[in-house]
C-alpha cells in the first residue's frame, strides 16, 4: 500500500508538488498523467525515498519513508521495482549483468545460477537472451532497453510495488505496444501495486483503471476512466483535449469488452 498525505515538495524556491494526497492499495494499478514538468516523476522519487517532502508523509505499507534513515530506505527499496525514464541501464555493464544486478550485489549466487535466472527473465520480458545477454545496453534499441530495465527491476526480490517513469516515451509504436503489454502482463500475473507516470494519454488508457491527473503540482483529477472522460475540470479538459478521439475509442473498446 502506498499513501501520500498532504505532501508539499519543491526545489529551492519553486514548489513542484502542492498538498498531494492519494492512496494506492495492494494490487491496484494507477496512472499518473499530466503535462511535462507538472511534478509526475517527482512523485515516484518521493515514493522511492530518493527525495524527502518538505511537508506531509509518504507511507509505504504504513511506514513513513521520509523519516527513515538511508539504511532503512535501502532495505525498503529492495521491495520496490523502479523503471526509470530511458531505462537508466548501467552502460558499462552487459545486459546480463544489468538484469542480474540485484542478485550480483545482494546474494552469494554464482554467475552460472544468476545467468540462468537472467535468461528466464529476459524470456519473460520477450527478449532473446542468447542474442543480447553479452551485449552492452547501447547496442539495443530503445524498446529493448526499456524491457531490459523492466526485467532488471523484476529480478530483485519479487517487488511488491512497481514504478514506471515514462515507460514508452520515445519508443516506436511496435515497441510501445510490447512494453505496454508487458506492464499489463505483470499487473495481471503478480499481486503488486503499480504506478505508471506518463504524459502519453493513449498509453495511459490501456494500462490502468484509475487515473490521477497532475496540473502544476496539484491533483486535478483522481478517479476512474468514466469520471475522467466526463470530468468538467478545465485543467483536465485542456490536458485531455487533443486526445478525446482516442478516449472515445477506448470507451468503445471497454464497452465491447464489458469493462
Amino acid at each position: 500500500m502506498i499513501e501520500l498525505r498532504n505532501v508539499d515538495f519543491g526545489y529551492e524556491d519553486k514548489l513542484v508538488l502542492k498538498n498531494i494526497s492519494f492512496r494506492i492499495d495492494q494490487t491496484e494499478s494507477v496512472v499518473i498523467m499530466g503535462p511535462s514538468g507538472s511534478g509526475k516523476s517527482t512523485i515516484l522519487r518521493l515514493v522511492l525515498g530518493l527525495e524527502c517532502p518538505q511537508r506531509g508523509e509518504v507511507l509505504i505499507d504504513s511506514q513513513n519513508i521520509s523519516v527513515m534513515s538511508e539504511k532503512e530506505k535501502r532495505e525498503l527499496r529492495k521491495s520496490i521495482g523502479m523503471v526509470f525514464q530511458d531505462g537508466a541501464l548501467f552502460d558499462s555493464r552487459t545486459v546480463g549483468e544489468n538484469v542480474g544486478y540485484y542478485l550480483i550485489e545482494h546474494t552469494k549466487m554464482s554467475w552460472k545460477e544468476i545467468e540462468k535466472k537472467v535468461v528466464e527473465m529476459l524470456g519473460f520480458v520477450g527478449l532473446d537472451a542468447d542474442e543480447i545477454i553479452d551485449k552492452l545496453p547501447e547496442l539495443l534499441s530503445g524498446g529493448m532497453q526499456r524491457r531490459v530495465a523492466i526485467g532488471r527491476a523484476l529480478l530483485s526480490t519479487n517487488p511488491r510495488i512497481m514504478l514506471y517513469d515514462e515507460p514508452t516515451t520515445g519508443l516506436d509504436p511496435q515497441s510501445t505496444e510490447n512494453v505496454l503489454a508487458l506492464i499489463n502482463k505483470l499487473t495481471r500475473e503478480r499481486s503488486i501495486s503499480t504506478i505508471v507516470v506518463t504524459h502519453q494519454i493513449a498509453d495511459a488508457l490501456s494500462i490502468a483503471d484509475r487515473f490521477i491527473v497532475i496540473h502544476e503540482g496539484e491533483i486535478a483529477y483522481d478517479g476512474d476512466f468514466v469520471g475522467l472522460r466526463e470530468c468538467r475540470d478545465e485543467r483536465v479538459r485542456a490536458f485531455l483535449g487533443p486526445f478525446r478521439a482516442s478516449m472515445d475509442l477506448v470507451a468503445e473498446k471497454r464497452f465491447m469488452n464489458g469493462v
Binding site: R45, L48, R74, R77, Q85, D86, D91, Y102, E105
Partner: peptide, 18 residues
C-alpha cells in the same frame, strides 16, 4: 557525472546500493 545525469546513481540506490 554521466551516471548521475542518466539516473544510473538513482537506479543503484533503488536497488539498495549506496
Amino acid at each position: 557525472g554521466s551516471m548521475k545525469v542518466s539516473n544510473q546513481l538513482d537506479a543503484m540506490r533503488s536497488f539498495g546500493i549506496d
